[in-house]
Design a protein around this nucleic acid. Sequence first.
DNA 1: TACGCTCGGATTGTCAACAATCGAAAGAGG
DNA 2: CCTCTTTCGATTGTTGACAATCCGAGCGTA
Lengths: 218, 218
Amino acid sequence: MTDTAAVGRPTIVRHQLERLITSGELAPGDRLAEVQLAERLGVSRGPVREAITALAQDGLVVQFPNRGAFVRTVSEDDARHLYEVRSALFGLACQLAAARRQATVEIELRDLLASMRAAFERDDSEAYYELNRAFHRALLSASGNPRLLRQYESISREISLFRARALTVSENVASSLEEHEAIAAAVIDGDAEAARRRAADHIVGGLRRHMKESAVDR
Amino acid sequence: MTDTAAVGRPTIVRHQLERLITSGELAPGDRLAEVQLAERLGVSRGPVREAITALAQDGLVVQFPNRGAFVRTVSEDDARHLYEVRSALFGLACQLAAARRQATVEIELRDLLASMRAAFERDDSEAYYELNRAFHRALLSASGNPRLLRQYESISREISLFRARALTVSENVASSLEEHEAIAAAVIDGDAEAARRRAADHIVGGLRRHMKESAVDR
DNA sequence: TACGCTCGGATTGTCAACAATCGAAAGAGG
DNA sequence: CCTCTTTCGATTGTTGACAATCCGAGCGTA
């Protein structure tokens, strides 16, 4: 009955549909025909409808009465709005993480940063992308606010719909890496205000990078 | 297909259920029996199920597989987490509003503040509560980020489940009013950083007030 | 009495059929 | 040729029935 259980019923169909969308198999703007999805997933229309309404509440799908559901399309304005919210959320996470000063987090961050630097130096943008995600998740978890993590991941899913087919080029990774190190330093140092500001600025920079199609750091 | 339409299908049943919960008719912890709700609302189980899953995704309801859905109970920790997120969101809203410097907002804020001060002086906490909400909404709207408004209202709905039966006592209204004036001044002045900080601190203060049962300013 | 098992009522999960609504194509009229 | 109306196919919205699952009452045994 508490926050952690509020993730909702992890119904198989819901996750399958979510995967179809986030993987790009169902592209933004695509129609979500209930019967078609039902037979594709081997179930009836009922579970599909519920999954669709859940995803609509999540923002991945938009519904029009009597006209059906469509995969959300994210305009440039939408993307800016989403990045603004994400920026505030990540800023808060780092602020809280810095205020808590957990020793385990310090180790985890140093470890991740070392791996990221290694991935950068051997130009492995695939690995860097994953480590980047792990780095963000680590700080979100370190905030001690599970709701914040959930909110952040929801926003991130929506953002992933923006220019989903942008290639991950390895430009600006250097500056991204520097920003990460600055954030980690502030968190480890316990400087909550600096951590917040740097984290927020970092996400805003992510919007810039995303806008110009170099999508490594989203 | 854009963000504004993403509010989801405004199905009657969903709003009815939401009202039952936010009005306190269905208290936190109460079971949401599908058949009972169905006949109470005069529909079948289908729409009720969909409404429940939507509300679960929203955080007002928690679901357990094969065991049913319950109105979310918000612990003190949950409340703190929610207030932290709310604080960041409202801070962002005021920061953005300050950066935009819209003339119409200035007028609106001055007007609202005058009404709030009047309500405070005649000790009308009911009116003050409503004006308080309007003040927050005005700043959220002035941010120019509809997604932010939506997120904020979602969080606010969840917070309203915390100690829902706390009486609205007219204590601390004076300090709350001062904080509002300080926020508005920063927004009007275009000082985004001050606006953000004051707004965030204001919400954190709201948590303190809420914790000690004086729930005027949530 | 305490513990484990079985069974039964109640509730959720799923399904297929029916009703309501929409959009597009066909047709009538100007 | 264009526009408005009408019809029709397709899709969503809703329903009641059936299957699966859970929880607790009752029974038996140590």
